[in-house]
Design a protein around this nucleic acid. Structure first.
Lengths: 188, 188
DNA sequence: CGTTTGATGACAGTCACTGACATCGCTCGG
DNA sequence: CCGAGCGATGTCAGTGACTGTCATCAAACG
């Protein structure tokens, strides 16, 4: 049992999720997470900025996926269409780990601090989308709006997907929600 | 200097904002806020759940305004129109304290934890909007989407309003943003 | 004037998070 | 094969947010 077991970061993330599920986020101390991972509290904070961040490390991957999808959308695509493409790409990533996503979400739903962190991560994704749209030559105002609204749609679709036991695909909910968006904004 | 100076809550809020502006949020301790208000740290936490909440106490007022505005919108108004009415009503509240709003926002913009709190307050406003729409008989899906998107538009408009020195009205930015939303979602 | 009630003070305790320094295991040039 | 260097970890002390508990004080009430 050397000091150097592999994948300390991953062990911490798994230990944290397990404990958050078993006993709840605020009944879990960082010392306990570290202990289960065979490490010390100090080392936890070398891998994750804080006790919440351990649940959100994957968010940077989503950022890459969104940025690449927007950049790769056909030139002819309107801003909102590029956003739609990106959201479906992100959906693909989440669908690969459906069970993990559901478990993680149930932990987040049970704790306000975690919800706050989730929201700022989503806001950061919105910023990524906006930047990627600007790269396509979309004016800043339209880019910002399309990104903000796109993330709003994603939140809405993701919620519906997570809340249902059926295994209807997330991308389906996203298409439905985009259609709903057009319906709701059209009539006036 | 009796123990019973009036408006302890208000004194704490003012002291907190002053200190957050002077020295920044994380360089300010709760003990310092309490001292400036002539109270103790323990008493601060009796009035505000945490160090951040002192900047967001007014959010419940916005909730009332939004709910009432949606309820009071003409029966003929489509969901998104009712949302528009509500957003302008909220804008009115903020415009009464433009200077306070700008100062407060500069503090929030300088600190991530405060941004997180702001986002969850906005999400809560979105929930309020959705509930109010449901009360009007709007189906839950449309209500949720309209609310979510409405708040996205509000965030966008508010940001533009705060960032400009000119005293163009917030409600103007909201109307512009709603128009932008329709433009961005229309072509497809 | 005594009692009650609600707000405050005082104090100890937990835990998230940080800085500083020691230690360990691996790698690489010799 | 060996020692230097380096990156990851351990150890420890400290700060500050937040909580529970009990004492205390000012005002309202009978």
């Amino acid at each position: 049992m050397g000091r150097w077991q592999p994948d300390a970061r991953g062990r911490l993330a798994r230990a944290a999720l397990e404990l958050y599920v078993e006993r709840g986020f605020d009944r879990t101390s960082v010392a306990e997470i570290a202990e289960r991972a065979g490490l010390t509290e100090r080392t936890f904070f070398r891998h994750y900025a804080d006790k919440r961040e351990v649940l959100f490390a994957g968010s940077s991957e989503l950022q890459d996926v969104l940025a690449r999808a927007v950049a790769g959308a056909p030139e002819s695509a309107a801003p909102m269409d590029a956003v739609a493409v990106a959201l479906e790409a992100a959906a693909g990533v989440l669908e690969e780990r459906q069970e993990h996503a559901r478990q993680r979400q149930s932990v987040i739903d049970a704790n306000t601090e975690l919800q706050e962190r989730e929201l700022i991560k989503l806001a950061s994704l919105s910023g990524t989308l906006a930047d990627a749209l600007c790269e396509r030559g979309v004016d800043e105002a339209s880019a910002g709006l399309a990104a903000e609204v796109g993330i709003a749609v994603f939140k809405f679709a993701f919620r519906r997907w997570v809340d249902r036991a059926e295994d209807k695909e997330l991308s389906l909910f996203i298409r439905e929600s985009l259609a709903g968006l057009r319906a709701v904004t059209a009539d006036a």
